[in-house]
Each structure stands twice: as C-alpha cells, then as structure tokens.
Nucleic acid binder design. Structure first.
Length: 551
RNA sequence: GCCGCUAUCGUCUAACGGUUAGGACACAGGAUUCUCAAUCCUGCAAUCGGGGUUCGAUUCCCCGUAGCGGUACCA
C-alpha cells in the first residue's frame, strides 16, 4: 500500500496538466431550481448506427418521466468508443428521436447544435472533466495506472479459468494495484501505454442490496474488480462517465437498458469512490423477437429489419400508433386508460415505473398494426391525405405524383366510409393506400384483370341489370335510396332481397340482391371486395360509372 | 463455467395469501350486411416442474428447468 504522499506524486505524474479539482467542476454545475417531484432524466445512447426501435422504447420512458412531472429531459451522446462510431450517427439518433416526438429540453439537438447550461452533452467534449475526477481518485488512492498488456490479461484469464476462480482483474491478480511510484515512473518514462483503473475494495463474495425502480429490491454480489475507468486514449469507459455526468447534470433518475443491471455494484462503488450520492436506477428490459429456431432473442440490429426505426417510416406506420404500442408494452393498463379517455392523446397518459415489464417483451407486429389501424381510423380524410402525401414524398414517387395532382379527388377517396358510425379500419400503414387507389384512376383500373361474372348471372340478366341500373341511377341519391333501387331491380329480374326466403328455398330465385350488387361492383371496380359501392360510385361520378358499366 | 434477472392464455399482461384466474391483441363461431372491412355477441385458451410454509399459494420460501443478461481499454 502506498502512502498519501505517493498517491499525490503518482497523480501529478499522470496528470501534470490537470490543475482543477472536483470542487471547481461542481461550481460550474449548480443545483437545478426544481421541486422534489420533478424528474430530470436523460437518455444517453451511443452513435453506433441507425436508431433502434428498442432505443425509442427506452428513451420514451426517460422522456415521459420528465414530461409528466414537468421536469427536464436530456439527450446526451455517449461517444466514447471511436471504433464503433458511425458517420452521421449523432444526427440519426437526434433526428430519429425527434421524429417520434421525443424532443430534448436540453442536450444534443444535432451534431452541430447543443442547448442547455449543463453541457457539453457529447462525452467526447468532456474529457477534461473526466481527467479531473480521475486525478482526484488517483490522489486518494482509489484509482491507479495499470500498464498491463492485452496478452498478459489473456494469460491471467486462462489461469483463472483453469483454477476455477472468478475471472477478472482484481485483488492478487491485479499486479499494478499497489505499484510504487518508482515503478510507475519507470513505465511512464518508457512511454508505455496505460489505463486508469478503479482501486476496488469491495468483497466479491459479499451480498449487496439495492432498489431498482422497475425490478424492486434486488441483491447482487459487491464489485471487486479493478475496472478500467479511463482508457489508454484518455476516453472514459461508460462506468466512469455515467456517475460523473449524471451527477453534474443533476439527473434525478437513471433510466437505462437492462444490460447495465449487472454492473450496478460497480457503479455504486465508483459513486462511493467519487464521494457522490448514488442515483436511483430504472432498468428497462429489451424488446425481443422469436428467432428462426424458435428461441427468444433481442431485436437485432443486423438481422432484423424491423429493429431499425426507418423500417416503420418506410412502411408508413404512423408514429402515433408505434408510440401507443410501445407505451402499451411499457404499461399494459394503457389500454384501460385509453378506453376511459378516448379523446385524449397518448402523451397525456402517465406511465409508472413499477408496472414496466421485468423480462423482455416480444415485439408483436400484429398488435402494433392494431394500434396503428385504430389510430388512422380517428383521422379525417384530409389528415389521411396529408399523412399519406408526406409518406409518399419520401418513399413512393408515383403515388406522390398522383396524390399531389389530384388532391380534392384523393380526399374524396379517403373519405369513403370514414364518416359516421361505419368507420373503415383496413389501413394500418400509409403504404396500404397503394392497393386502394386502382379503382379510382383509369390507368390503374385498366391494368386490372377483367373478372368473370357470377355463374348464376346470365348474359341476359347482365344486360338487364346494367340497363336498369343506369336508367335509374342518380348520384345524388342517399345510399339507402341507392340500395332500395338496386333491390327493386333485383326483384324485377327474379333476384330476391329476402335472405331468409332465399335460404329456405334457393331454387325459387335466380339469386340474391347481393349477386346483382356484385355485378355492379365487378363492372365498376373489377374487384370482388371493395368499400361501400354506393360511395365509390359517388366518388367516381356518374359519367365514369356509366362508362365502366357499358364497357 | 461463474454471477444475476425473469417465469400467468399464442402474444402483452391483471389479480392486499381467499377471484368461476380478469382484460387487450390474435384466433374461431354467430348476428348484421350489396362484397370486404367495421360493429355487436359468444367461444377457445394460462398460473414452467417438484417440494415446502399455511385452514388456504398465481402470490411467500427452497430445489430444478427454461429464457434472457452480465462476466471488455463496447456501450
């Protein structure tokens, strides 16, 4: 064990240019002027690729916690691993989150913009801060330089495995743990690479209990590993940056992925070494899916296209539906709340941490689509038009052109069965419109295959149905009147509108009114299944209807 | 391997130690209907296994099993 003086000497040797101490830093980050119940949360992703749907899921928790308490939500970027960093990664995160309505009160707005008084919010810009705390720790004997090589580390691990003891750099195995000033000086003079490690004094066998805001009271073994705090390039590892940043930014609740759960004892020890108060944690489980072999696994960045939020944009799932679905996984009582608050938006719903699921939820596309369908059903025709237009602008040039050139007409199309009590729910994503437009545009209509008529319709009947329909058709008719007319035509030609009578004695009739309507449907739309035929005809206009019927 | 977390219908989940184990999505059937969709009704369907504790266990404890996570100069 080194003496106090030696620690000071080592600290000075390692960090000759660091003149500040933690107190100086704390002064720059004054306490926030907030009340007890107001949450300050942060979401702190790494810019390592596209925005993962699981990232949105976790960010949503931090965001809602802050919003529902009138607190502050911060986006901090943890760009401390230059090897994994991706071009434009920061913008992908910031913009993507913003697209889902998760807007930062403070923090990173884009790769070139940050707002707030507690920055910088990019960890790569905070290196000098970490150095101050690292130096302080070294000077107190709670951290030390370690010159061990990767090869030596590998050797240690092998030995530990052979001996059947816990692996890791700790205790007796940590050969630089108690190195003298002289030995360290020698290495520094040789310009050897080194990292700064925590001088752990935890007992790895001892129980350690803490309360997780999601999981409840839990116990783990205490940390005993001399973890790396500062890498040889001077960048901090997550474990070191997290206590410092979250303390300085006055975060009240740490929301983070479940993968951090197991390192909580380490974080507690670092907080303690730093002489800082620990923060309450909420560990959020990842989103899962069933893989090819039938096993459960985390939604994977590489294997699963649906892990990328851009997939949802490209398919045209409304972000409101996606968000509602995620909230529903978070707190399943959302649906009950929604039933009692039909007019309210999901962002008025308050989530509670204790209700968040503790293992990993399977991502259920069917349910996601159900939420999206319900959401789209609440929109007006004009809103649908605008949303589809936005989507098409990005992802479907032809649809975009068609929509922009026929605005009024398209709004009429989207209005079919959108008003009144019979609301269509056949659209769960914007791209669904692609297959719904062909009835209404001749170029698309003409390329549809010409269907054959129902078997019980003779050529004679066909001719009569069409003639009689055309002569009585008035586009101004109410759809009830429209149908009465179709019934009348049917009856006059021997097709019944009395379904019970038909069921009892089918041979008495040529068919039902449905068969007659089907003839009209097939002639005007070339499809067996369509929305309300009367409404379709109104949109098409009499001229077009007559033309198609006669053809 | 070691350490830990988790375990209720197919899925997401609800249930002060006492419920016919509830809801939602999905599915099936029915009603309605010009087809489809919608809507309404009905149905199907679960406490991982084994031990305890208790008058009584989905709930508490132990063991097992499975899934997941951690065991990095990645986050």
């Amino acid at each position: 064990m080194n003496s106090k003086e030696e620690f000071l000497q080592i600290a000075e040797l390692l960090f000759p240019n660091v003149s500040e101490n933690p107190e100086d830093i704390f002064k720059k980050y004054p306490k926030r002027n907030l009340d007890e119940g107001q949450y300050v949360t942060r979401f702190a992703p790494s810019p390592t690729g596209f925005l993962h749907i699981g990232t949105v899921f976790a960010a949503l928790v931090a965001f809602k916690l802050a919003k529902q308490s009138n607190g502050v939500y911060i986006l901090r970027i943890e760009d401390t691993d230059k090897n994994r960093e991706v071009d434009n990664g920061v913008n992908l995160l910031a913009q993507g989150l913003k697209d889902y309505g998760i807007c930062s009160d403070e923090g990173v707005i884009s790769s070139s913009e940050q707002i707030g008084d507690y920055g910088p919010y990019m960890q790569s810009e905070r290196l000098d801060i970490y150095a101050v705390f690292a130096k302080d720790l070294v000077s107190k004997g709670r951290a030390y330089p370690c010159f061990i090589t990767p090869e030596e580390l590998e050797e240690i691990r092998k030995k530990q495995e052979d001996m059947g003891v816990r692996t890791g750099y700790y205790g007796e195995w940590a050969k630089w743990r108690d190195a003298s000033f002289e030995d360290i000086k020698k290495e520094i003079e040789k310009d050897s690479k080194f990292v700064i490690r925590l001088y752990s004094n935890g007992d790895g066998e001892e129980e350690f209990t803490f309360t997780d805001l999601v999981k409840g009271k839990k116990s783990l073994k205490k940390n005993s590993i001399d973890s790396v705090l500062l890498k040889s390039d001077g960048y901090p590892v997550y474990h070191f940056a997290h206590p410092i940043d979250d303390t300085l930014m006055h975060i009240t609740n740490v929301v983070r992925g479940d993968e951090w759960f197991a390192s909580t004892p380490l974080h507690y020890e670092i907080f303690q070494a730093l002489e800082l108060d620990v923060l309450p944690y909420a560990h959020i489980s990842p989103l899962m899916k069933i893989d090819e072999e039938g096993g459960k696994r985390k939604l994977s960045k590489r294997k699963d296209p649906e892990a990328d939020t851009r997939y949802y944009s490209q398919q045209g799932y409304p972000k409101e539906g996606v968000l509602e679905y995620l909230i529903n996984i978070l707190n399943s009582n959302y649906q009950d709340w929604k039933r009692g608050n039909k007019e309210k938006s999901y962002d008025e719903f308050k989530i509670s941490l204790e209700k968040i699921n503790r293992s990993g939820a399977l991502f259920d596309f069917v349910k996601l689509e159900s939420f999206c369908r319900e959401y789209i059903a609440t929109l007006s025709a004009t809103e649908v038009y605008e949303r589809v237009l936005d989507w098409a602008k990005e992802y479907d040039e032809q649809v975009f052109k068609r929509l922009s050139e026929n605005k009024e007409y398209c709004i009429k199309i989207f209005n079919i069965e959108r008003e009144g009590k019979k609301i269509r729910k056949d659209m769960c994503k914007w791209s669904d419109v692609v297959g719904q437009l062909d009835i209404f545009f001749d170029d698309l209509f003409n390329s549809l295959e010409i269907p054959s008529m129902p078997e019980n319709i003779s050529d004679e009947d066909l001719k009569n149905i069409i003639e009689e329909f055309i002569s009585s058709y008035d586009p101004d008719d109410d759809c009830n009147v429209w149908f009465e007319k179709v019934k009348a035509i049917s009856e006059s030609l021997g097709f019944t509108s009395d379904y019970n009578a038909f069921k009892k004695n089918p041979s008495k009739f040529k068919g039902k009114v449905g068969d007659v309507a089907m003839v009209l449907r097939l002639k005007t739309t070339r499809k067996m299944q369509t929305p309300d035929l009367c409404e379709i005809m109104k949109v098409l206009g009499k001229e077009k209807v007559v033309e198609r019927l006669k053809n």
